[in-house]
Amino acid sequence: MLKKRIKKDFSRYGGLYLLVIPVVVYYIIFHYIPMGGVLMAFEDFVPRRGIFKSDWVGLQNFITFFKSYDIWRLIRNTLRISLTNLIFGFPAPVILALLINEINNKYFKKFVQTCSYLPHFISMVILCAMVKEFVSTNGFVTQFLVDWFNIEKVSLLINKDYYVPVHVISGIWAEIGFGSIIYLAALSGIDMALYDAAAIDGAGRFKQVLHVTLPGIAPTVIIKLLLAIGGIMGVGHEKIILLYNEAIYETSDVISTYVYRKGLVSGEYSFSTAVGLFNSVINFALIMVANKISAKVSEVSLW
């Protein structure tokens, strides 16, 4: 019976299966083989001997990491960057969207939107090059802070206390506009009749925002917030690699940059893979928890 069904399935959809073979092969080679490759986290991996012939060391790499001085610094920095980003970077595009939404003149609105999206289209390499210039000793950001806040006139990127603000503020600069698109769309999806009804009930503009606008965009905000919380331990390496330097590892080195340096710069393959695996397990758990919470508090869920 099953055999017959399989036969029928293949005779009917054979051509379709042929088309998906390249896709399946791609996923096996470029995603599933590396997933199997995490086994090297439990080995003393030597490239010459390959993954099957290297010596097994059990949890040794993890133990080394947990006992190292680095782990707390990495977790602290990762959390500090993502929490600062969550507190300041997350609300910024929401607020911008609410304010753009209040602009009456259609052309001015379009102008503000187009300008604010622009930095999103600057590549990371260039963005970081610009940031480095602007916060250098003679940069205008540094000069501004010297004039107004009386800080010392040196590059901000050699002072460990300034790394997180530079990272987060430049991120807000680059993404505030583009990030507001999704909220603007949610805002335009709110039924105008709700505003009229609220006005008839005596609600002023502010009350309307409070009782109609905010509940209207709440589902979008919640989904985005959950995604952000799920990614809290997943601070990316690209921007940090471009911005940091040895003098400020104390505050700028995060798990992903550490994985990069240990794995590809110093060649500690197994140790780096172990740290990476530790990080992805935490990321995965966080996404699951975030989704569970959202399913509880509202009907909004990531799936």
Binding site: Y17, I29, P34, G37, Y269
Partner: peptide, 28 residues
């Protein structure tokens, strides 16, 4: 219709949440 559609779907979606990481990909 195709019977294996669910299998392929799961195979693709898993990769959204889990990957081998930097070093295994580099070795590949």
């Amino acid at each position: 219709g195709p019977m294996l559609k669910g299998v392929v779907a799961v195979m693709i979606i898993i990769t959204m949440y889990f990957g081998g990481g930097l070093v295994p990909s580099y070795m590949l």
